[in-house]
Design a protein around this nucleic acid. Structure first.
Length: 308
DNA sequence: GACATTTGACCTAT
DNA sequence: ATAGGTCAAATGTC
């Protein structure tokens, strides 16, 4: 990797290290959950950026990187067909985690589905040996924002008031709750990535999302992007945090900020590419790899394998 | 008419 | 061959 590309990478990694040290220092002192959350958010975004730089810069798909717990089956589709076309298939490491949600009687309808995100059901399947079918949901913003998050919901065999929810992939979409929360709580990021004055930010944000209402129809998306700005919708924010901790939120926010820095033409081009590109490279224009990165587990990272 | 859900068909990994 | 996951046409709802 050439020096010009190496520098920002080093900066990101250094920043990540410093933030981790800050977090470590804080651990010995009384600290609010928000402070902790903020630091973790910053750390994750730093490493995510760094990893993205590496992804873009060196074509290192063969490198010994392992993120978290990866199932040996469908979670990883490793390199294939490298002989025929010398094209490396990207490693698909989709984070997967489960939750059990108990629902009080009478609230079944809203129950496990209102986790703060907007989901669209795309299938249901009877599962062998299970008393209840499994429902498959994907993020409503899949087509528009290329968000690949999915979840599976299945009523527990033992206790039918318990829903077992398996999430796959983190949200890369912007949801209203995340946006307002992130903007409230991450002034530093804002400072670093947005250089415009506040009124300009507002204009840009409105423009960034204006495509959503272009259909002129009140969709769920409209509900999630109230008209408009920073309207803090009280959709179970706490639950949301628990389900999609900082990784997904952080990614979404950073992506958004990159959007803000785009020029008008960049922005429209980006929107078009997102809308038309299907699911292959929905956020390619903003420099964040779609490859999901699971920071829950260990990161085995041997930087010496990459050409710097 | 637009969007969401349902459900049988199809695909893929084991 | 089978089970789990996804697709997409049909249907429902607003």
């Amino acid at each position: 990797m050439e020096t010009s590309k190496k520098r920002p990478l080093i900066n990101e990694l250094t920043q990540g290290k410093e933030l981790t040290n800050q977090l470590k220092d804080y651990l010995d002192k009384p600290m609010s959950a928000e402070t902790c959350e903020f630091l973790v958010e910053r750390i994750l975004s730093s490493y995510e950026k760094a990893l993205c730089m590496l992804n873009k810069g060196s074509g290192f798909d063969e490198s010994p990187i392992s993120f978290g717990e990866i199932s040996p089956t469908t979670e990883v589709s490793d390199v294939a067909d490298s002989d025929s076309k010398n094209v490396f298939k990207k490693r698909k490491t989709i984070p997967k985690w489960s939750e059990q949600v108990k629902v009080c009687s009478g609230t079944m309808v809203e129950g496990p589905l209102s986790d703060g995100y907007s989901w669209r059901k795309y299938g249901q399947k009877d599962i062998l040996g299970a008393n209840h079918p499994r429902a498959y949901y994907r993020c409503t913003h899949r087509n528009v924002q290329g968000c690949l998050a999915t979840k599976q919901v299945q009523r527990s065999d033992g206790d039918s008031s318990v829903f077992e929810i398996t999430y796959r992939g983190r949200h890369t979409c912007i949801q209203a709750t995340q946006l307002s929360k992130a903007l409230e709580k991450t002034p530093k990021i804002e400072k670093e990535t947005i250089h415009d004055s506040k009124p300009t930010q507002k204009i840009h944000m409105e423009r960034a999302f204006s495509f959503k209402s272009s259909k002129g129809v009140n969709t769920n998306e409209d509900k999630l992007f109230p008209s408009f700005l920073f309207d803090s919708t009280p959709i179970e924010t706490e639950k949301l945090e628990n389900l999609f901790y900082l990784g997904g939120d952080s990614t979404a926010f950073i992506t958004f900020n990159h959007n803000l820095q785009s020029s008008d033409s960049d922005l429209s081009e980006m929107m078009n590419s997102r809308t038309n590109s299907g699911t292959n490279s929905p956020i390619g224009d903003v420099g964040f790899s779609l490859d999901y990165v699971d920071f829950n587990g260990d990161i085995l990272f041997d930087i010496t394998d990459f050409e710097m």
